[in-house]
Design a protein around this nucleic acid. Structure first.
Lengths: 363, 363
DNA sequence: CCGATAGCTGTAAACGTTTCCGGGAGTCTG
DNA sequence: CAGACTCCCGGAAACGTTTACAGCTATCGG
C-alpha cells in the first residue's frame, strides 16, 4: 500500500499521529517518547528519527487543554512606558521564572474596557494566572477580577472587602513623607502636580497632600495644585500652568515622570533646582537617578510589591483554595539633590534614605 | 430524579456541558446560543439563564484548539526598560489592535536561551504570530526563527539569506549622520560610547563610526572608544572611564540610555554640554527630549519599524504562503541642544530635523 | 391537502495532546 | 516449571470547544 497520510492535518504540519505512523508505533508510545518517559531503546530511536524527519513540533494549545496549564503568567499594567512598571515587571519576572513559567506583559493604556477585555480573554485559561495593576477600578472591573477563572493578584488599592489577593502601599503616607521633608527643610509654598483625580492613585495622593499640609498648619492654596496625567509631557505642561499663576518654593509630583516634566519646566523657566524650587518625585524609579540634578523621590516599593505579588500568585496557583490575602509595603523617601538637603550623596544603586513621618498612617 | 453532575469537571468550573444539561438542551445548541448563532427564542432564553446561573465562562484554550487561532500576538524584545522598545511596542499595538488581536510583550533580558525558549514555547501556537527584535543572533536562533510554526517578523539586521520577514534600518548610516553633524559643527576629538561588540547593533555601530571617521580623514583614536552595555548605568561608567584617559570634544552614544549616562557623567565631571562636549544619542526616544539639555539623537525610525513589522505580520498571518519580505527604514538626525547647533527649538513632538550624509549607504 | 422549504435541534466527529488501563512478553524467584 | 513481577505497548478516553450532518417540525405555496 502507498503512504498513509490520513492523519496529516490540512495545514500540513505534522502531529503526533504523523510521527507515530512514520515510526510505526502507536500515538501513545510516540507521545511517551517525545515526553521522555518510557519507551524501549528501539522505539525511542524510531520515534526520535521520525520526529526529526518530519520536523515535529508539539502543539502547545492541545497540550494545555489536556494538562490544564500553560506555563504562562501575565502582567497587565496601564503604561509600560512608566519605569515604575518596568521595575515591578523585573521583580515579577524573576520570581515567575524561578517557577519555570514565562511572563507576558500587556499594556492596557488605561482604557478600562481594554483591561476587562484582557481579563475576559487572557484569564480564560490562556495563562495560569495574572497580576493586574489597575489605576481605575469600577464595579464591573471588580467583579471581573473576583470571579476570574484564573488566579489574579492586584497591585494597588482596592476596596477593603474585595476577595482578591492584593499587594498595596500607602501612597497617602508616601505624599506625607515628601511634605514632611520639604517642611523640615524650610519650604512653605509647596505645590503639587498630580495625576487625574478619577484614578485611585490620583485621589489617594490628593488626599494625602491636603492632609499633610493641614497637619503642618499650612493653608492649602488651590493655585499651587495642578492636575495632568501620569506622563512626562503632562507633568511639564501642568507645571508650566502652575508657574504661570503661582510661585512655589517646592513641588511634590505624583510620580517620577511628572517630576521630570516639572524639572524640565522649572529649568526652562529659569528657576534653579533646588535653590529656588525643591522637587520631590514619586516611585523612586531609575529615572530619578538619571536626572541632573538627581531627583528626590518617594519610593513606593514597586520592586518589593512586584516580588510579593508574584509570590502570592504562585502560591495561589499551587493552591487555589487559599483565602484572599493582603500585603502592604511601606513607602520611604530617598533624598537627593533636587530637594536640596546637603547630604553625602547616597550610592546610586543603594537603599534609599528613609525619612519617618510623625503620622502613623501605616507600617 | 436527582441532579446530574456527571459532566461537571473535577475542577468545579462549568463547561458547555454543564450549561447544556442545566438548560435541558444539547451542547451543540448551547454552543450556538453562546456564540450568538441560531437558536429559538426559548432555547436562547434557557441557555442564557443557565449560563448566567452557573457563571459559565468559555475555555479559550479549547476554543483555540478547535479554531486554530488565539487572537494573540507576541512581541519579544531584549530590554523593556529601553524606551525605544516602548515606542516600538506602541506602534505595533496600534496596528495589532486594529485587527482585533491583543499584544503581549516578553522581555528576554538578552539571554539567548531565553529567547529561543520563548520561541519554542509561545510560537507553538500560543500566539498567532510574533515579532522578535533580537540583539544577538546565532545560527540556532535563526533556524528556530525560520521554521517557527507560527509567522515571525524580525526587527533588526539579519543575514541576507534568512527566509524571514524582516524590517531593518541602517544603523551604520545612522552613526554616520551623527559624525557628519559633529564634524560639520567643528568637533574633531569625537568619542564613541558603544554597547557590546558581540551584538548585532554593537558591531554595526562600531563599523559605522570607524568608517565615518575615516571618511573625514580623522584618525580613529582607540582611547576615545569605550564599550559597556546598552543601559544607563553602563553608559555612565563607560563615559567616566573614557574621560579618565581622554579629552573628547564630542561623544556619540550607541543609544539614548547610554547618552543619558554620558550626559550625567560629563556634568558630574564639570564639563559643560554642549560647550565643552557635544553629545549625540541614538534612537531618538522620548528620553532624549526629557533631558536638560535636550539630547540630539539619531532616529532609527523605531515607531515606523514597529508599524511596518506589525503590518507584515498581519499580512503573513492572513496568507502564510507569501514570500519573505524585507523593508528598510532610513535613519535621520534630530538636532537639539546637546550638540550645540543653535537652532530654533523644534516642536517637542514634531518631526526630527534630518541631516543628509554624503555617503549613500542606504535610502 | 401535499411537497418543498426553512429553521431548530441533537448526535457525533473533529482539533492534538496526555494518560489510564489492560494485555503481552520477558525475567526472576521459589 | 509455575507464578509473580517488570517493562513496554496500543486502544481508547479524556480535556472543552466548534461544526458538519441529518432528522425533525412547522410553515408556506400550489
Amino acid at each position: 500500500m502507498g503512504r498513509k497520510r490520513l492523519q496529516e492535518p490540512a495545514d500540513g504540519r505534522p502531529t503526533v499521529h504523523t510521527v507515530a505512523a512514520r515510526a510505526g508505533v502507536s500515538i501513545a508510545s510516540a507521545s511517551r517518547v517525545l515526553n521522555g518517559i518510557g519507551g524501549s531503546p528501539e522505539t525511542i530511536r524510531k520515534v526520535r528519527a521520525a520526529a526529526a524527519e518530519v520536523g515535529y513540533v508539539p502543539n502547545a494549545i492541545a497540550r494545555s487543554l489536556q494538562s490544564q496549564r500553560t506555563g504562562l503568567v501575565a502582567l497587565a499594567v496601564e503604561d509600560i512606558g512608566n519605569p515604575v512598571y518596568v521595575e515591578m515587571m523585573r521583580a515579577i519576572e524573576a520570581v515567575v521564572a524561578s517557577s519555570g513559567r514565562q511572563l507576558l506583559v500587556h499594556a492596557t493604556g488605561g482604557r478600562i474596557d481594554n483591561e476587562t477585555a484582557l481579563l475576559r480573554r487572557l484569564a480564560n485559561r490562556y495563562v495560569d494566572g495574572m497580576i493586574v495593576s489597575p489605576i481605575r477600578v469600577t464595579d464591573d472591573h471588580l467583579t471581573a477580577l473576583v470571579d476570574s477563572p484564573v488566579p489574579v493578584v492586584v497591585v494597588g488599592q482596592l476596596g477593603a472587602d474585595a476577595a482578591v489577593d492584593n499587594v498595596r502601599t500607602d501612597s497617602r503616607h508616601g505624599v506625607a513623607l515628601a511634605v514632611d521633608h520639604l517642611v523640615a527643610t524650610g519650604r512653605r509654598r509647596i505645590g503639587f502636580v498630580n495625576g487625574p483625580l478619577d484614578t485611585v492613585p490620583g485621589t489617594a495622593r490628593d488626599a494625602g497632600f491636603r492632609a499633610a499640609l493641614t497637619r503642618h498648619d499650612i493653608r492649602c492654596d488651590e493655585d499651587l495644585i495642578e492636575v495632568g496625567d501620569f506622563q512626562y509631557a503632562a507633568g511639564r505642561t501642568a507645571t508650566e500652568r502652575l508657574l504661570a499663576r503661582a510661585d512655589p518654593d517646592a513641588l511634590v509630583c505624583a510620580n517620577d515622570l511628572i517630576a521630570v516634566g516639572a524639572l524640565h519646566a522649572l529649568l526652562a523657566a529659569g528657576r534653579q533646582v533646588p535653590q529656588d524650587v525643591a522637587v520631590v518625585g514619586m516611585d523612586d524609579t531609575e529615572l530619578a537617578r538619571m536626572m541632573f540634578p538627581q531627583l528626590s523621590s518617594v519610593s513606593l516599593g514597586s520592586t518589593e510589591r512586584g516580588r510579593r505579588a508574584a509570590e502570592l500568585l504562585l502560591q495561589r496557583i499551587a493552591d487555589p483554595t487559599l483565602p484572599p490575602r493582603r500585603e502592604q509595603v511601606p513607602p520611604s523617601l530617598a533624598i537627593r539633590a533636587s530637594s536640596g538637603t546637603p547630604l553625602p550623596a547616597p550610592r546610586p544603586g543603594g537603599p534609599p534614605t528613609t525619612h519617618p513621618t510623625s503620622e502613623g498612617v501605616t507600617s
